[in-house]
Computed example of a mutant assay.
Amino acid sequence: MPKRILQGTVTSNTNAQTVTVLVERRFTHPVLKKTIRKTKKYRAHDAAEQFKVGDKVRIQECAPVSKNKRWEVVTDEAATAEA
């Protein structure tokens, strides 16, 4: 099964090797036909601690790293050039 990749903004990097990423999704409400924005925060593993607050990053599913971390920051050059 392919791993999901999401794009978001780093909102916190105070924890060691961890960043909190805010991911926004937009969809049309089925009845009201209005565009709705929903946000969700993910905690992602950042081993090199290279990302700062405000950076656009891509995160990818991975095996559990800790109690709350199930995502890792994608660090390949193509992804960082796009973001």
Score class of each variant (00 low, 15 high):
3 K>W: 02
4 R>Q: 04
4 R>N: 03
4 R>I: 01
6 L>A: 01
6 L>M: 07
6 L>K: 01
8 G>D: 01
9 T>K: 15
10 V>E: 00
13 N>M: 10
16 A>D: 14
19 V>G: 04
19 V>T: 03
19 V>I: 12
20 T>N: 09
23 V>C: 02
24 E>A: 09
25 R>S: 08
25 R>K: 11
28 T>K: 10
30 P>A: 13
30 P>Q: 07
31 V>G: 12
33 K>H: 15
35 T>I: 14
36 I>C: 06
36 I>T: 08
37 R>N: 11
39 T>M: 10
40 K>G: 00
40 K>I: 05
41 K>M: 11
41 K>I: 07
41 K>N: 08
43 R>S: 15
46 D>K: 13
46 D>Y: 10
47 A>F: 07
47 A>N: 15
49 E>L: 07
49 E>Y: 03
50 Q>C: 05
56 K>L: 08
56 K>C: 11
56 K>R: 09
58 R>C: 07
59 I>G: 03
64 P>D: 03
64 P>R: 11
68 N>S: 11
68 N>Y: 13
70 R>F: 13
70 R>H: 13
71 W>D: 04
71 W>V: 02
73 V>K: 07
75 T>W: 04
76 D>Y: 07
77 E>F: 11
78 A>V: 06
80 T>M: 14
81 A>E: 07
81 A>S: 03
